[in-house]
Every structure is written in C-alpha cells, then in structure tokens.
Write a protein that binds this DNA or RNA. Structure first.
Lengths: 352, 352
DNA sequence: TTGTATGCGTTATCAT
DNA sequence: ATGATAACGCATACAA
C-alpha cells in the first residue's frame, strides 16, 4: 500500500484533475480544437505546459488511435554503414525535409544479425520507406503489416518505388567514356554484383545470373554501350566490391591496374569507388585521365572537388527521399523514375 | 454491429486463442523464457511467426512496461542539415553501432519551427542523447522528463556530456600554423560565433561576450596561441559563418581574401569551412600554402583527399557517439573528454 | 507450468 | 461545451 513512486509522472488525467476539468476536455484541447472554446483551450494548454505536461504519451495515444505519426525508414545495411554512405545521407536529407514539414517523427530500422529483435518496434510506424536492397524476409514481414510502404532503389512487385533508370544512365556514361579514347580496354568496378563479403572478379556464371538489383541494371547499361561500340568485356574484367567504401574499392582498383588487362577505361558503379580508383591509379604512377579514364556514378560532393574532378552520373538522391516521403504521407502510392544527368569533368577528358 | 475491419490485425490474444494457450503464456514466450518449457516456447514462437505475429505491439508493450527500448537523439539543427553534416553523420555512426549491439531503436528528433509538435513523441524513448547546442526550451523540457540524458558537444550543468577540449585543441593548431610563417597575419573563419543567419564580421562587443559554446572555446584557444606569439587579432579579422556549409564559408572566405588585411594564415573552425576557403583562395589566384596557410578543424574524410590536403585537428567523432550511447545504456552517467590530435598536411607546409 | 484479472494513458462515443 | 466510460494490446501479480 505504500507509494512506490514518489513522483508519478504527470499524465492527462492528472492535468485534468489539477485544472478541475474532465480528461476528455484536456484531450480535446490537444487534439480537437473545435470541441471547446478558444479561451479554455489556451488556458488548458498553457497550464498543462506549466505543470510539465507537454502532450499526450505517444505509446498510449498510438495504442488508442492506431496511428503514431512516426515513419519508419529501413536502411539496407547496418546503421553504422549507412551513416557513412553519402548516398544514404542525401536520401535521408530528402526524407527528413518532408517529415519535418508534416510533423512526423523518424524511426530508423536496420538490417542486423537478429532481425527479430526490432520486429516489435515495427508495429509503431504508420508507414515505411525501404532504402536499397533489403533482407527479403524482413521486407516481407513488414509489408505484411499492411501499412503503406515505398521502396527507394529497390524494386519489388506491387510495392511503389522511387528510383532512376540505372541501365540507361550507365549506358550513357559508358558511351561517353568510350568515345574519349581510340582503343578502349574497359574494366568495371561494380558494387555488390555477387553475394560475397570480399572483393572478387566475376565469372561467366555470374554474368548469366538474372537480377533486378540496381547494380545489375548498371552492368547491363555498361554492356549496352560496350556492345554498341563493338567492344567486349570478359567477366575477368569485372570486379565486385562488397561495400561502398574506399577501403574495398582500393583493393579492387589495385587488382585492376596490376592485371595484364591494362585497362584505359574504368567504369565505376559509385563515386566512392571511382575516387578510390583515381587515388590508387595515381599512387601507381598512372595519370588520370591521360593513361586511364575513370568515371563514377552518383555525383557525391567530393566528385567535384577531387583532382582530377570526377566525371559521373548525377542522380537527385535527396529528391528520391523527398518523393518517397511525399508519396507515403500523401497516400499517393505510385512508381516514380527520376531523371539523371551526365556530368563530364576532368577524369574523362584526356585531351585537355 | 457490423464488422468494420474485415481483417483485424493479429494480436497476442489472437495468437493465444489460435494456439489454445493463455495470453500469459504467449507473452512469456516472448519475454520470459524461463517461465515455460523450451519446447512450448519454441512452438509458440514459430507458430506465431507463421501466423504473422512477430512480436508484441510496441505501443502497448511500452505503455505497460514503461520502457520502449527506443533511444531518442536530438539533433541541434534541422534533420536536413544534420544529415548533410559529416560531423553529425560520424557521430550517428558511433551511436548506432552501440544501439545495434544493445538491440535498441533510434528515434530522431530535431529542432523545428514548431517544437511542441514532437513533444508527444518525447514520451517514448527511454533516454536521450543531445548533439550540439540545443534549443534551451526543448532541452529543459526533455530533461524534465527525468529520463537519462547525455549531451555531446554541448555542456549543461548537471548533465553528463561527451566532448573534447576545444580550447586546447584550437590553441594547438593555431600554434602550429603561426610557427610556419615568419610574419603571421591571422584571420579566423569561425562558426556560429554570433546569433545571425548571415555571414558577418565580429565587433569588439562580440568578443566580450561570454559563452560556453564550443565555437567560443575554439576562439579562446586561437587567442591563446596568438597572444603567446605576440600577435593580435582585431575583431574585424574574425568572421562568423552561420552554417557549416560550403556556400556560407565561401562568402566569408571571399571577404577575408578581398579585405585589406591580406591574411597569410586562416584558422577555420571546421574542415568544411577550410576546404571552401582553399577553393576560394585558389580561384582568386592565391597559392595554398605558399601565399596563405589554411587549417581546419574536425578531420572529415575530404580533408585528406583535398588538394592541397588539409591540416586539421582530428577529433574522434564517431567515438563521441559511441561513448555517449554506452553511457546511456550502461547507466554510467559521467563526463568524458576525448583526445584530439593535430594532423599536419600540405595546407600548412609552405616550405615543401 | 499455466490461466485470470487488472491497469498502463489515451481517445472516441455517447449522453448530458 | 463537457463528462463518464469502454477499448486499444500487453505484462505482470496472483491464483490455480
């Protein structure tokens, strides 16, 4: 019978008691301004705030309303990796811009060892945005919740998605690169082309694999350009970088430059990879772009500042997040393909 | 009397009914493995999952338990800005690494026009991490909730904080810069030194202002070094950049280089500012470091790749987030000052 | 080991 | 305009 909690946290009921009104009235003050006089409402709000009550408890409120005003974003890798990835950051910028506008909160989810641990939290958000290729099990589990979902850079049947035309963008930049030299010997530094945690070259079997992953689309785009120029790329000229980081990219780049292929065109599936390739080339005594042309994909901010500056494909990454969030919040669930732009800079201009 | 929801979402009770056990047993299967046989538990978990029930509803569970396993992170600016800031990202990397380990979820808060809109959500997290100088009202409101709080790069009485010794780090790099030239004429490109949304120079009054903001500490550190070298910096040689972005930094840098001061040492309070200053100097025909030495603060990844590479202060930013999160989750609330390191690169080495 | 009952804080319905 | 009350889904004390 003792009072366990000396100071029990103030709740809506407590506020109602202290102000001598009913709980319904306080609730209405917060949620339905039209249900009470303006005077009373303002008095309640200011008094409540003075008492230290700043709004209904989220857990209770969303339990009751079946809505939390929280949006979940599922990042396709660990949070730690995602925050280090410029692309993910730009995308999150776009999402958050819209969420701020709509007064929604952002709950971040991630792929982890134990993906059941967070499944409890999956019940909270009113909707989800998936960024990148998610774990299929997790993806299905969340979609099965029946809440609105949008994917970014990840295509799944019946789920609205936001992305770019990776194949044609890849073709575009490859065409440009090939046009810059007389005799092109092409190598590709791709991203996550095969399932492995290590840098590795592809084999013929890998090429035959069908997949809708964006990396595959980019690969097809490169092939389109190569074929159109009567060139070929054997699988040994294609590297798969497991993570979009400088470290892994350098390993791949070093292998490419040390190989007997002597490529003079390196098509990279990300700017991070391309920048690492430039730096690797330079440290091996190669001149970019005179000895080797290197192009990227994404147009991250470093691309412009690098030396030589990087030729790449500009994709409106923040816009992706913005569009996805808007689709979710305005319940306008449809597919959206954003435009890309070829940005020619020094790394592909040997004649200057 | 009609059935409004054709398919009511499955809940714990529903699972219990379908499996022919009590709700308590299902609950125990998820929360207290020791309360039932291993066999039964596994059967319940797998059956539940098969039925599409993947864990207790977060709202209901945290309402009941008074705990959500969600950690709130308050970013000192808009989310959009924070995600564009390399420092904030590194810090978030550190936080998320620990949260993943402890199976916690991350709910992001931000300073916005209407900071009451998210106050409802503030009731959910079990604890908060504040990054950077928060709005004092919001800060106090959250602290008043009585939940564990930790600040990063923000010092407030009685709240445990994680940071660096900004003053001595600033002094260290300033001493180095000054030692590199014969006759130093110093200009400072500071960050948020005064309350303004525009780039502006300081006045004597601004200098007299006391403040614990980290920018002020860095300023004091610069002064320490200047004084020790029998130099002076008039307030007109100090610029305040309102946001840590290239755009604003370039405006300030241009003013600094165009002024009659002709500074040959530029002390920048961030790498973003310093890199913008380098690029501005170069576009104005100045050679860095021969004509002017430029140093930064932070050691973001671009610092190493810039040309010339940037001399700066390396602060373990991810570590800050890691430490703060650990303090929160291990309930080990204390203060922590992390080490910094001077990183000398080309931008301050005119003799090479 | 399992089942029953209560309340967590809120909101919406309904009556006043 | 306001007040009483049931229900949201769950976890725990307690009884069996």
């Amino acid at each position: 019978m003792e009072d366990k909690r000396i100071t029990k946290r103030l709740n809506l009921k407590g506020v109602a008691e202290k102000l001598g009104v009913s709980t319904a009235t306080v609730s209405n003050a917060f949620n339905r301004p039209d249900q009470l006089s303006k005077n009373l409402r303002e008095k309640i709000l200011s008094e409540a705030s003075r008492l230290g009550y700043h709004g209904p408890n989220l857990a209770a409120r969303s339990l009751r309303r079946g809505r939390s005003d929280v949006i979940g974003v599922m990042l396709s890798d660990s949070l730690t990796y995602s925050f280090s990835d410029p692309m993910a950051n730009q995308m999150l910028q776009g999402i958050s811009e819209v969420l701020m506008e709509y007064n929604k909160q952002l709950l971040l989810f991630y792929e982890g060892k134990d993906n059941t641990a967070q499944s409890s939290a999956e019940s909270l958000p009113d909707g989800f945005i998936f960024y990148g290729s998610s774990n299929l099990e997790t993806f299905k589990r969340i979609v099965a919740l029946g809440k609105p979902c949008v994917t970014i850079d990840y295509v799944q049947d019946k789920i609205p998605s936001v992305g770019i035309d990776d194949r044609s963008a890849a073709k575009k930049i490859a065409m440009h690169a090939i046009s810059q030299v007389n005799h092109g010997t092409v190598a590709i530094l791709g991203m996550k082309l095969v399932v492995s945690d290590r840098v590795c070259r592809l084999t013929q079997d890998d090429l035959d694999e069908k997949s809708v992953e964006i990396s595959r689309q980019r690969l097809l785009g490169y092939f389109d350009a190569v074929t159109e120029n009567d060139l070929t790329i054997p699988p040994e000229s294609i590297w798969s970088v497991p993570f979009n980081t400088e470290k892994y990219a350098k390993i791949a780049a070093k292998e490419a430059f040390s190989s007997s292929l002597h490529p003079n065109i390196i098509l990279c599936m990300s700017d991070v990879i391309a920048l690492a390739a430039i730096s690797t080339a330079q440290s091996m005594g190669l001149n970019v772009p005179k000895d080797v042309i290197i192009v990227g994909f994404d147009d991250i901010s470093e691309a412009k500042h690098a030396s030589p500056s990087l030729t790449t494909v500009c994709q409106q990454n923040a816009q992706k997040g913005k569009v996805a969030a808007k689709m979710l919040l305005e319940n306008n669930l449809t597919n959206c393909i954003l435009e890309t732009k070829l940005v020619v800079r020094q790394s592909s201009s040997p004649t200057n």
